[in-house]
Amino acid sequence: MNIKFGKYLVVLPMLSILVACAQLSPMEAQNTESGKIISEAKTVNDHENLINYYDKLANEMTVKAEEKRKLLEEYENHSQHYGRRGQDYRSHTLANIRYYEQEASEAINHAGYHRKIVAELQRNEYAKSVDRPELVNNPKIKARLSETENLKRN
């Protein structure tokens, strides 16, 4: 009995060290990286890239949800082939469909948010060029104008 207790005292700290040193799951690492990209987006091009990313993600999630709907239809049409596990398959598939639809909806919302940002950035850029008609077709001077305006503000 004393030997078993000693083994637990040795194994417990080892397990706690392993748990503490475990890396982030790939999904958590990806979320951290994408959060950094989103927070650093400042230009129209950055936001357009995010719009493309979210549109692509929404399309992928919609396709996956449709695949799961077809699978659900298979379970319901041929439930006799699946026996008792059929209910588990059905409920799991319904949960997957809800998840994919929710992710698609969130991606569409994120894309819409970035579209609004792009529209606002483009409107501001258009307003700057109208203020000085000679700058309409000269992006170099626009950049200098923006820098001098920032210096005046500070």
Rank of each mutant, 00 (worst) to 15 (best):
A58Y: 00
A58E: 02
N59K: 10
N59Q: 13
N59V: 03
N59G: 08
E60V: 08
V63C: 12
V63L: 10
V63R: 15
V63N: 15
K64M: 11
A65F: 11
R69F: 04
K70E: 09
K70V: 00
L72M: 04
E73G: 14
Y75I: 00
E76N: 10
E76L: 01
N77C: 04
S79H: 11
Q80P: 10
H81L: 10
H81T: 11
H81Q: 14
Y82Q: 00
Y82G: 00
G83E: 04
Q87F: 14
S91H: 14
H92S: 15
N96Y: 12
N96M: 15
I97N: 05
I97T: 02
R98C: 08
Y99V: 02
E101W: 01
Q102H: 12
E103I: 03
A104F: 02
A104P: 01
A107N: 01
N109A: 15
H110A: 14
G112V: 03
G112R: 11
R115L: 01
I117P: 01
E120M: 04
L121Y: 03
R123T: 05
Y126G: 12
A127G: 06
A127R: 08
K128H: 13
K128V: 07
K128A: 13
V130G: 05
D131V: 05
R132A: 04
P133M: 03
L135M: 09
